[in-house]
Amino acid sequence: MRAALRGAVRAPGRVRRAALCALLVVLPLPVLFASLFLGRAGLDPGQVLGAFLGRAEPTVRNLVLRVRLPRAVAAALVGADLAVAGAAFQGVFHNPLVESRILGVSAGAGLGAALAMVLRSGPAGVQILAFGGGLAAAALAASLGAAFGGGLLVLVLSGILVNSFFSALLGLIKYFADPYVQLPGITFWLMGGLPAVLWREVLPLAIVSGMGLALLLLLSWRLNLLTLSEAEAQALGLPVRRLRLGVIALGTLLTAAAVSVSGIVGWVGLLVPHAARALVGPDHLLLLPAAAGLGAAVLLLLDNVARTAFATEIPLDILTGLLGVPVFFALFMRQIQRGGGWR
């Protein structure tokens, strides 16, 4: 009886988890392909393939390669980045209810983007200032945390302070922005979305995403150790604080890069890591790629809904919110029914 019980609660075998991880990693590819023929101008798969092979008429070619493909790639990268950064932050903070915005990255990015719009510095300026603002906010929170003693809780507290402060500054800019042109722009940016994404915006995002993901994967086993209490990790010879800051820096880089292209998109960074963890387990070597694949697929799907469901685009953050809350509720109820804590 006891043996049977043990068999039932046995963690799924490593091979099965690795296979699931591989499946999640390739999951975005078919979704990405499908995204190319979905849209107001419906294309069939043959036309899409033709565009790639250079056999389609110029308008179709243009639509597929210059409009839909960069947007789909951007959606996939944003989803992957937010999910991976969320997973890394949840590990570092020993808290599955955390996401990478906890240190004020989004508030900083929002401030940067709003500033760029008020200064009329164009799309490139918005991307650069949003990216810089996000990094600056997280760096400020991290240094405040270090000044308070460097523990995890004071880091969270510093994040709350920075979030609040940057939101207030953002409010100030909105208050003084031109209400007919700039204010709507700022408001739409803060609701997230990927309309009119160009390759020159996607390229830097792809470079930062690739580097961040690769470095986090290299650190994945150490990241497992960071989920232990500080004293335990220290006793195992880990340079806890240095490593923690390194992982936070990489997660922040990914988040800032994503947000600087997409605007604010919530929930993905919180829920996708959960789902990925439920499927492949907590080992970050499998969890990070699984979260990346699942995050990319989810955001691709949501972006397809955002641009095709209605005559006008629905902002992404509204969609993730509408979907995220019930999903979160379902996950939470399932966890309560199982009688366990967050795993």
Partner: peptide, 28 residues
């Protein structure tokens, strides 16, 4: 850490690592 091992009274188990994964942490 190669010379002194420390076993705390409480260990945080926020995430469901397997027993083997937990023990492997000792190889750090």
């Amino acid at each position: 850490a190669k010379r002194i091992a420390y076993v705390p009274q409480f260990a945080e188990a926020v995430f469901a690592f397997t027993v083997e994964e937990l023990v492997l942490f000792g190889r750090a």
